[in-house]
Computed example of a mutant assay.
Amino acid sequence: MAVNQTNTETAAEIKAEINHPPQLRAARTRKQSIIKFVILFFTLGFLFVPLLSMLLFTLRHPLSGRWSAAPWQAIFTGNGEALGADLTVLWQGLGTSLALCLVTVVIMLLLMVPTMVIVHIRSKALERAIEWVATLPLTIPAIVLVVGLGPIYRWLSADVLSTNPIWLCFAYVILVMPFAFRAIAVGLNSIDVKTLVEAARSLGASWPRVFFRVIIPNLWQAILSSAFISIAVVLGEYTVASLLGRMNLQVALYQLGQSNSQISTAMSLLALLFGVVLLVALDLISDAMRKSKEGK
């Protein structure tokens, strides 16, 4: 009875909507459009007004009020002596961060992808346990992680490795693990991994062949997502590198800001722009891969 009554009410609502005059439907559409525009306007304002303020700060001298593109010219020419800034530390931090991005992504993929694929096939209970471990860094502040990692890095620097900032990759793998796990997990849940594996094995394919020729091609989008998100996290990381006394891009920007805040702000805007380019590239690659699959 309750189901029939609900169906009757739904049908009545649909009929009433159809019978509305065109003027009322047009007015409702205009009202919805206005509401969407207001929400979008305030959201974009909240996001872009600070960025616009940063851009204006890089172009207008804070004391004299004189407009100049000298900070941007210093970055692209590599010469900041005229503005009293030594850009050597900036290029050192940028090179270190790019190297850290590469090493961190490689270690993360080698660690996460095979583990998650095997666990996804073999044990759902163990998959939940790994999810708990992988997402645990989200609940632990970076400064708390440094307290635990500090003695380990002191021992590694003194007895095993050097003080080269590249070894921050081990700490960064921990930081990016929650984001990488979620991206790869979405990819695994979007395909029927067990059926693909069973079909490939029944046709005589070895496990390495199943992994590289069957599973990985279906996970490319998830792998790219995890890689790009990891790069964005590594480029924006400051706390761990600063407290461990290592140089990366964010530490270099902080030090550069002590001598010339305009150049530091301009470089921060470029780093943000690079992150946006990564996200747009991910979206374009995902669309291209989806269209390629649909075409086949």
Rank of each mutant, 00 (worst) to 15 (best):
A2P: 14
N4V: 14
Q5H: 06
T6H: 04
N7M: 13
E9Q: 12
T10L: 15
A11Y: 06
A11G: 07
A11K: 12
A12Y: 07
E13Q: 15
K15D: 08
N19I: 08
L24P: 00
R25C: 02
R25Y: 05
A26M: 09
A27R: 15
R30K: 15
K31C: 03
K31S: 13
Q32D: 06
S33L: 15
I34F: 13
I35T: 11
F37C: 09
L40Q: 11
F42P: 02
T43M: 15
G45S: 09
G45L: 14
F46W: 13
L47W: 10
F48P: 00
S53L: 07
M54C: 05
R60W: 09
L63D: 05
S68L: 04
W72K: 12
Q73P: 02
Q73G: 08
I75P: 09
L83N: 10
L83E: 02
G84M: 12
A85K: 06
G93W: 01
G95W: 04
T96S: 15
S97R: 01
A99F: 12
L102D: 01
V113L: 11
T115L: 13
V117P: 09
V119R: 03
V119A: 13
H120Y: 08
S123F: 01
A125T: 10
R128L: 08
A129E: 02
A134C: 15
A134H: 08
T135Y: 01
L136R: 03
P137K: 00
P137D: 01
T139M: 14
T139P: 11
P141T: 12
A142P: 03
V147W: 06
W155C: 03
L156F: 13
L156Q: 05
A158W: 08
D159F: 11
L161S: 07
L161K: 00
S162F: 07
I166T: 00
F170G: 01
L175V: 14
P178V: 01
R182C: 11
R182I: 09
A185G: 03
A185V: 12
A185K: 14
G187K: 04
L188E: 08
L188I: 12
I191R: 02
D192P: 00
V193P: 07
K194Y: 07
K194L: 11
T195Y: 11
L196N: 09
E198P: 02
R201D: 04
A205N: 05
S206I: 03
P208I: 04
P208C: 01
V210E: 07
P217N: 05
N218R: 08
N218S: 10
A222E: 00
S226Q: 07
A227D: 07
F228S: 10
V233H: 13
L235E: 15
E237A: 09
V240C: 07
V240I: 15
L243G: 03
L244R: 05
R246Q: 15
A252N: 03
L253Q: 07
G257V: 02
S259L: 04
Q262W: 04
I263C: 05
I263K: 01
A271Y: 03
L272Y: 10
L273T: 14
L273Y: 06
L279G: 00
L279F: 14
V280Y: 12
A281K: 02
D283T: 11
M289I: 05
K291I: 04
K291D: 09
K293Q: 13
